[in-house]
Every structure is written in structure tokens, then in C-alpha cells.
Design a protein around this nucleic acid. Structure first.
Length: 424
DNA sequence: CCGTAAATAT
DNA sequence: TATATTTACG
């Protein structure tokens, strides 16, 4: 008798996740108020549907999950029907609109590009599931200290793994569409958007934020991460520019910048002063293998590391990528390329430290041709800003390059490895 | 802008 | 500690 009530209490939790559908139904049956019942049903149903949406993009990879989800949804819908019939409650309509709204709100921060629905979907659900960081394959050490639930950490881990496989598979299957590539960059850059300080947290309004029970492997840096978060909120770092970053910055000419009224303040959000010191460090740019590949490609077209950051950036055509970031990467690149040849005991080329790079432009291997440069012999002929095309709208895509990404962790040398004597 | 070096974050 | 990325400077 009394036992039921306890379950009831549990059930009333905002986002109650039952162990099984059956248990959910059971709990449902214990609810007396029909409106409550319906509300619960709708709630759960909508969540299921959201989930379905997310997974939909992966239906090929996760057919069973689709099945299960569909099944669950079907059952719940039936239940819903039943309830509705039993006592038709007029209030119902109020709940329905809630359903899609959530989903919508999430997409809206990305409307500017709507290329492939499927891809976008994938991206979306990625961002909603792991929200934070996608640290490329390479190092697993890059644990991201996050605010809440270590639970998320764990699943994040898993997801990342999965994603890896999936991406690999995908790469083989649909490498053709550029969107995929772009997607891959953004998997990083998109985090930086929201990830800057805190996420839009659009989807689940309240997943157990309760009791985090630090079971995290190491608490060595607890001070820097978890606790700080709450303090970061008001002062807010990371607001810097993470938002407009892409699109606004193209070729030294401020783009359209859709924002309607910059000067005017926000409506009623005033309570949290979001203006303060902009002394925030930019989110670290994550150079995914793909990005790096593009980087190297551009470098190649430009004739080695002597290229200037700006040129490289323009050639890379990765939006959201800033000049400085490229510069920095270039710096690193130069460092590495300089150091590598000395390190290896390679007999073929011992000297010519600096010449290593000059080889790069040479090897027109593959489809190098790169329409851009008319004469491969003298790489020095591109003056700054002499590029006619300057502002190329994204529609234009001369991105063929599917050379090879050498799997994970880009190595600086891999590309230079080409032997071939510099015609002295 | 570019290159380099110092400062930081991971 | 080493490395990756950001910032500061000339």
C-alpha cells in the first residue's frame, strides 16, 4: 500500500528516467491525476522522439537502437491514446507544442548553413551529447574537466570512441560530400562556440545535476575546473568572440554580421552583467587532423612554410579560423619541420635543413596540379592579397583533396618525407 | 601583418 | 615535464 507512494515521489522528478518502459508504464498507472499522467507521458515521449531524431542520422550504424526507440515510442503513443480516450482532457494542447520547441531551439544557433540535413543532424546531436570538446583521436590524455556529472564523462568517452569508428566508416562511404569534412572541423570549432564558458544547454533542461559524487579518477585539479565554474558564470570569460567568429571574418572585410542591433542591450537579461572585462583567453583552437591536413595542403600550394599566415588561412577556407591561429600553427609547424630532419639519422638527406621545405612545393605528386599556381617552379609569385577571388562564397568548392590523412595524429614529417633532390 | 618569444593551458 | 595554443611585442 504505502510502497506505492514512494515510487510516486520518485516519479515526479522532472526528468525521470525509468529503468524500463514497463516500469515507466507501471509508474504511470499509479498516477491518479489524469493530467499528470498525460503530462508525464508527453514528457517522456517527447524525449524519446528527440533521441530518435538524434539517432536518426546514424540509423545505419545503430539499427537496433532505432528499433528499440521506435518500439518504445509506439508503445507510449498507444498508451497516450488510451489515456486520452479514457478521459479526454482539454488541457492537452498545452503540452504538445513543447515537444518540438526544444529541438528547434537547438538548431537555431546554426541556421546559417543548411547544407545537408543529415550531416547537420549528426552535428547537432554530437554537440548535444558531448557538448564539450571532441579532442581529436590522438591523445586520450586530454580529459576535459567539466562541470557536472562525471557520468557524462564516462559516456563522453564512449561516445567519442564510437564517433571515431563511425567517422572512419563514414569517411570511406561519403567522402564525396564536402559537408562532411566541414562537419569535422566544426566538431571542434562548434564546441568553442558554446563551449567557451558554458553551453547553451538547450536540450535537457535538467539532467541530474544533483550530487556529482566526485568519482573522477583524479582530483588533482579539482580546484581549477569544477568549482570554478560557478564563479565563472557572472564574470564570464570566454565571451570574447566565440559567437560570431565564423562568417564575420573573411578577408579583412567585416561580413554581413546578421546581428540586428549591436548597441542596444539585451531585453531583460540584464541581471547578469555580461559586459565586464574581456580579459578572457580564447578557447584553444583544436587542430584536428583534418584541419591540419588542410593547413598542410594550403602550405603546399603556397610553396612551403614560407607562406604567410594570411595566405594560408585564405586558402584553407575554414571559417572561424583566425589569422593568429594559423600563425601559431605555422610557428609550430616550422619548428617541427626544422627539428625533424636533424633528429632522424636519415642518410638520404642529411644537410639542407631549410631545404626540406622547398621540396614540398615540388612534388606535384598526386593531383597536386592545384589550379591555383600556374608555375610550380617559382612558388614565390603570389603576392599578398593579389588573389582575385578574395571573397569566395562558400558555394564555391574546389575542395577535392582527399589525399590521405594518415589516420590520426598528424605528423609533420609525413608530408615532407618525400625524397627528391632539390635541383641545385 | 608577420615572426618570435613569453605566457598559459592541458 | 612536455606540448599545444594564446598573447604580447617589435
Amino acid at each position: 500500500m504505502g510502497s506505492v507512494s514512494s515510487e510516486l515521489t520518485l516519479d515526479l522528478t522532472p526528468t525521470f528516467v525509468p529503468k524500463t518502459i514497463a516500469s515507466f508504464l507501471y509508474n504511470l498507472s499509479t498516477i491518479q491525476t489524469s493530467s499528470h499522467k498525460l503530462s508525464k507521458l508527453h514528457d517522456f515521449l517527447s524525449r524519446l522522439e528527440q533521441e530518435l531524431n538524434k539517432i536518426h542520422a546514424f540509423k545505419r550504424e545503430l539499427p537496433l537502437s532505432m528499433l528499440l526507440l521506435n518500439d518504445a515510442i509506439l508503445i507510449l503513443k498507444e498508451e497516450l491514446e488510451k489515456c486520452r480516450r479514457e478521459n479526454c482532457v482539454p488541457v492537452l494542447e498545452e503540452f504538445i507544442p513543447l515537444k518540438k520547441e526544444i529541438d528547434h531551439s537547438e538548431e537555431n544557433h546554426d541556421i546559417d548553413r543548411d547544407k545537408n540535413n543529415e550531416c547537420r543532424d549528426k552535428k547537432n546531436w554530437m554537440s548535444s551529447v558531448q557538448l564539450w570538446n571532441t579532442t581529436t583521436t590522438t591523445t586520450t590524455t586530454t580529459t576535459n574537466n567539466n562541470d557536472n556529472n562525471n557520468n557524462a564523462y564516462e559516456s563522453d568517452h564512449k561516445v567519442r570512441n564510437n564517433q571515431n569508428k563511425l567517422e572512419t566508416k563514414k569517411r570511406e562511404e561519403e567522402e564525396k560530400s564536402v559537408t562532411v569534412a566541414e562537419d569535422r572541423f566544426q566538431s571542434c570549432s562548434s564546441n568553442r562556440n558554446g563551449g567557451s564558458a558554458f553551453m547553451p544547454f538547450s536540450t535537457y533542461s535538467s539532467v541530474p545535476v544533483t550530487t556529482v559524487t566526485l568519482a573522477a579518477p583524479k582530483d588533482e585539479k579539482d580546484e581549477s575546473g569544477v568549482n570554478r565554474l560557478s564563479f565563472m558564470m557572472p564574470g564570464v570569460k570566454g565571451l570574447r568572440e566565440g559567437f560570431d567568429s565564423r562568417g564575420s571574418r573573411s578577408s579583412s572585410s567585416r561580413a554581413v554580421s546578421v546581428s540586428s542591433s549591436p548597441p542596444t542591450v539585451q531585453p531583460s537579461l540584464r541581471s547578469a552583467p555580461v559586459q565586464p572585462q574581456q580579459i578572457a583567453r580564447k578557447q584553444r583552437r583544436c587542430w584536428s587532423p583534418e584541419l591540419h591536413r588542410r593547413f598542410v595542403n594550403a602550405l603546399q600550394k603556397l610553396g612551403g612554410s614560407q607562406a604567410t599566415p594570411k595566405q594560408i588561412r585564405e586558402l584553407m577556407q575554414v571559417d572561424g579560423l583566425t589569422n593568429d591561429e594559423v600563425k601559431s600553427h605555422l610557428q609550430k609547424y616550422r619548428l617541427h619541420t626544422r627539428r625533424v630532419p636533424a633528429a632522424n639519422g636519415n642518410e638520404s638527406v642529411v644537410v639542407l635543413g631549410g631545404l626540406w621545405m622547398s621540396q614540398e612545393p615540388y612534388n606535384g605528386s598526386s593531383k597536386g596540379s592545384s589550379s591555383a599556381s600556374g608555375s610550380p617552379q617559382s612558388p614565390l609569385h603570389l603576392a599578398t592579397g593579389s588573389r582575385g577571388g578574395t571573397s569566395r562564397t562558400e558555394g564555391d568548392s574546389m575542395e577535392d583533396d582527399d589525399e590521405d590523412a594518415k589516420s590520426e595524429s598528424y605528423s609533420w614529417k609525413s608530408h615532407i618525407q618525400r625524397h627528391g633532390q632539390v635541383g641545385v
